[in-house]
Amino acid sequence: MSRESDVEAQQSHGSSACSQPHGSVTQSQGSSSQSQGISSSSTSTMPNSSQSSHSSSGTLSSLETVSTQELYSIPEDQEPEDQEPEEPTPAPWARLWALQDGFANLECVNDNYWFGRDKSCEYCFDEPLLKRTDKYRTYSKKHFRIFREVGPKNSYIAYIEDHSGNGTFVNTELVGKGKRRPLNNNSEIALSLSRNKVFVFFDLTVDDQSVYPKALRDEYIMSKTLGSGACGEVKLAFERKTCKKVAIKIISKRKFAIGSAREADPALNVETEIEILKKLNHPCIIKIKNFFDAEDYYIVLELMEGGELFDKVVGNKRLKEATCKLYFYQMLLAVQYLHENGIIHRDLKPENVLLSSQEEDCLIKITDFGHSKILGETSLMRTLCGTPTYLAPEVLVSVGTAGYNRAVDCWSLGVILFICLSGYPPFSEHRTQVSLKDQITSGKYNFIPEVWAEVSEKALDLVKKLLVVDPKARFTTEEALRHPWLQDEDMKRKFQDLLSEENESTALPQVL
């Protein structure tokens, strides 16, 4: 008996699950189920560990084997000379395990699969056993689809999209007709009724959600790893209520002995410091949205989908001078704002400069500016000194954290500008005749005249004003913003236009 009217009423009120309206889709043409990776026989039982391990490696599972009696060998002398080797079968990115008779397991190899009674669906509900069930008529011709799209860092995100009359449910929550939600590992998919569980979705590319604290899981769906560094790992996640993407940084307390840091400095109150950081608001710094204190720290951040500045300059790639100017102007505005709010970044580098898009002209935002507030000064500097390429001379020669101030950030900005303009770092371990530390503390950077011949004198002058060993003589952010190279009204107008595109209400910060 159909429950279409009941569920449609529920759909009209929406769902609290991570779902959002989605535009129309072009329906895929039908194809045989076997060619799409559906096993030839149905099963109602969950797999054992041996079955799972075989399939996850990209080899055929026991459900897909063919009797050897149906095959015969071709003698080598009868092999056609022009026969080309077969292409290897792509490894599946996800697996659906059937929970009921009449449904088959599915190895997801393609990027898009339609499910329903219509014969054009890649996964067609046409098993005779299924057709005899009382629920068969409640399934729509095109009930739902599972697909994946390219996300940040060229990774993939799996989604389920509801197109049914009676509802598609993920972990008992209604997706909603015309809406989608991301699928995470071990999600249970039910059709027409929330208790009519048909599939379990296994994402073969992500970790299980159960490793994360419950308070975090209640608000966010964790997904793929976006990156990792000395101070922690960053994962893509989704807000459950809105389906908006965020980035979540995970900082290990054990790695940084944060408990010991608190004992050594009783004034170090991470929760208080995070609340201060959350109040920071500038178009060129990453917004801190939320914070969870569990076995590790979880910092929920605004997501930038254009990648890191590092990706644009790695491998001796240089940027156009006009692009360097647009990016560097924004970096200076961001660091100036942090300094005005009493925050020294201490870890400025291309990896911590994020881009809003893949376009050459785009907004940038500074991230990882609050680590000293979370990890403690000593722990952070011990970590950073392991990779000193961007560290100021006074940091390398000081004991502990004494003896330096916000000028350290201006040195790091000078190193970043040098790399963007030239395509190579000013200080490098590859210069074996002088140690990296000695290069930095003496201010002897690697200047290649033929490379810098293409760079304007004004740009080079600003680099020199920032890479000054004496912090008292080094340019401040205010002085850098007043430098002739940055007195470019076309560049500032472009920045204002980019801000307006992102948010019509965002105004250009005042600069002296």
Rank of each mutant, 00 (worst) to 15 (best):
S35Q: 14
P85K: 02
V150A: 07
S2A: 11
F144V: 02
P80L: 10
V206I: 15
N269F: 15
E70V: 02
T65Y: 03
E149L: 00
Q27P: 03
R180Q: 06
Y136H: 04
V206Q: 13
F115V: 14
R181I: 05
K141I: 06
K224Q: 03
V246G: 07
R145Q: 13
C121A: 13
D111R: 15
H54T: 04
N110R: 06
T168K: 01
V25H: 11
S31G: 12
D218F: 07
P90C: 08
E161G: 12
V234I: 06
I38A: 11
L193K: 03
V170F: 13
G165A: 01
G178Q: 15
K141H: 14
K241H: 01
E219A: 09
L216M: 01
R254Y: 12
E87Q: 12
L129F: 06
R3Q: 12
I38L: 10
F199A: 05
P90G: 05
R180D: 00
S155N: 13
N269W: 13
K135T: 08
N154R: 04
K153L: 06
S32K: 07
D208N: 07
L268I: 13
S228E: 00
T133K: 06
R95G: 04
A230G: 09
S42C: 09
S192Y: 03
S44C: 13
N154L: 03
A261T: 11
Y113N: 14
D111E: 12
H22S: 08
R95S: 07
T45N: 11
S40Y: 02
K131N: 10
E239C: 00
P128L: 09
H13F: 07
L130S: 04
M222T: 10
G229A: 15
C231T: 02
T133M: 08
T89I: 09
R95M: 01
E127L: 11
T26Q: 06
L204Q: 07
T225Q: 07
A237T: 15
C121R: 02
P92K: 14
E263S: 06
K241F: 10
S35E: 11
S140V: 05
Y136M: 07
E188H: 06
R217E: 06
T59R: 07
V246K: 15
Q78E: 11
P75I: 14
C243F: 11
S67C: 09
P47C: 03
S42N: 04
I258L: 12
S57W: 07
W114T: 07
R132C: 12
S33N: 12
Y123T: 08
D203G: 14
S155K: 14
K249A: 01
S31Q: 08
K153H: 01
R132L: 14
S210Y: 15
K131I: 11
S55E: 13
T242G: 15
K179E: 02
C18G: 10
R95C: 04
D77A: 09
A257F: 06
G165M: 09
S140D: 00
E233S: 13
Y139D: 01
S28M: 13
D134K: 07
K177I: 10
A267W: 10
T45H: 11
S42R: 14
T168Y: 00
K177G: 12
G176F: 14
W114E: 12
A98G: 13
S140Y: 01
A247H: 01
E239L: 00
D207Y: 07
I250C: 04
T133G: 06
V7G: 12
D162W: 00
E263G: 10
L106H: 08
S16H: 04
E233G: 09
L226N: 01
Q69V: 07
A237M: 04
H13I: 09
S252A: 06
S31T: 08
I258W: 11
S40D: 10
K249F: 02
T133A: 09
M222A: 00
G23M: 14
I160P: 01
S50K: 08
G14R: 14
G37S: 10
Q34F: 10
R148Y: 08
R148C: 14
F125H: 01
S67L: 04
G30K: 05
P85M: 10
G23R: 04
Q10G: 12
E79V: 11
G30Q: 10
H143S: 03
F256Q: 02
L63G: 03
K245P: 04
N185V: 12
L236W: 06
P75T: 13
S55Q: 05
N166D: 02
L268A: 11
E271R: 13
A91S: 07
F115N: 00
I38H: 11
L106F: 10
T89S: 09
A98I: 05
Y156C: 12
S32N: 07
K179T: 08
F238Q: 09
R117W: 01
Q29C: 11
A98C: 10
S32P: 06
T59I: 08
S31H: 12
T272R: 14
S57H: 00
L129R: 08
D218N: 15
K153E: 03
P152M: 00
N48R: 09
E263N: 03
F238S: 03
P92R: 15
E87I: 09
E271K: 12
S41D: 07
D77M: 10
V150D: 13
L268G: 05
E173P: 01
S28W: 07
K249E: 11
R117G: 00
N105V: 06
G259R: 10
V7F: 07
T89R: 06
I248G: 01
A237H: 00
F201R: 01
F103V: 03
N105K: 10
S52D: 02
I251N: 11
S49A: 09
T172Q: 15
V66C: 08
L130K: 00
V109Q: 14
K253R: 09
K131G: 14
T172H: 04
S210G: 01
L71S: 04
E149G: 05
S228Q: 01
N166R: 03
R181T: 03
S5I: 15
N110S: 10
S252W: 10
T45F: 08
L96K: 00
I157Q: 02
S16I: 12
I38R: 10
S155W: 10
E81D: 08
F169G: 04
V66T: 11
K214W: 10
S2Y: 08
S12M: 13
D265A: 15
V109E: 12
S260I: 09
H163Y: 05
L99V: 11
E86N: 11
P88K: 06
S223G: 14
S55L: 07
P21C: 13
D134Y: 11
P182S: 13
K214T: 04
Q69R: 01
S55V: 08
A91R: 07
P21Y: 09
N186Q: 03
P128M: 06
T65A: 08
R180H: 14
P90R: 12
S120L: 13
P88Q: 07
I250V: 10
A267M: 10
V66R: 04
V7W: 04
E173L: 14
P128H: 07
P128W: 05
H163S: 10
K253T: 02
N269E: 04
V200Y: 01
G116P: 01
S15N: 05
M222R: 01
C231G: 14
R181S: 07
Q51R: 10
K255L: 02
I74S: 12
S24F: 11
S187T: 04
K245E: 08
I251Q: 08
K245G: 05
R181A: 09
F144T: 00
D218K: 04
G232F: 01
P266H: 04
N184C: 09
A104V: 04
V25M: 06
D111A: 07
F202C: 04
H13N: 08
E161Q: 14
V246A: 03
L60T: 06
A17C: 06
S28N: 08
P75M: 07
G259T: 03
K249N: 15
N186H: 02
F115L: 08
K141C: 06
V270Y: 05
E188K: 10
D203T: 02
Q51S: 07
I221R: 03
K119P: 12
K135V: 14
S44M: 10
G58A: 13
L129G: 09
S35I: 11
S49K: 09
R240V: 11
M222W: 05
C108R: 04
S49Q: 09
S35K: 12
A9L: 03
E233M: 15
D265L: 01
T205F: 01
I221K: 02
Y113M: 09
K224C: 00
S33A: 11
S5V: 15
E79A: 12
K224N: 06
S50R: 13
T133R: 04
R262Q: 15
S53Q: 02
N171C: 11
K142E: 12
L63F: 13
K142H: 04
V175D: 00
R148L: 06
E76H: 06
R262F: 13
S73A: 05
V270I: 13
S24D: 13
S155L: 15
D77C: 03
S24Q: 15
N105F: 14
A98D: 01
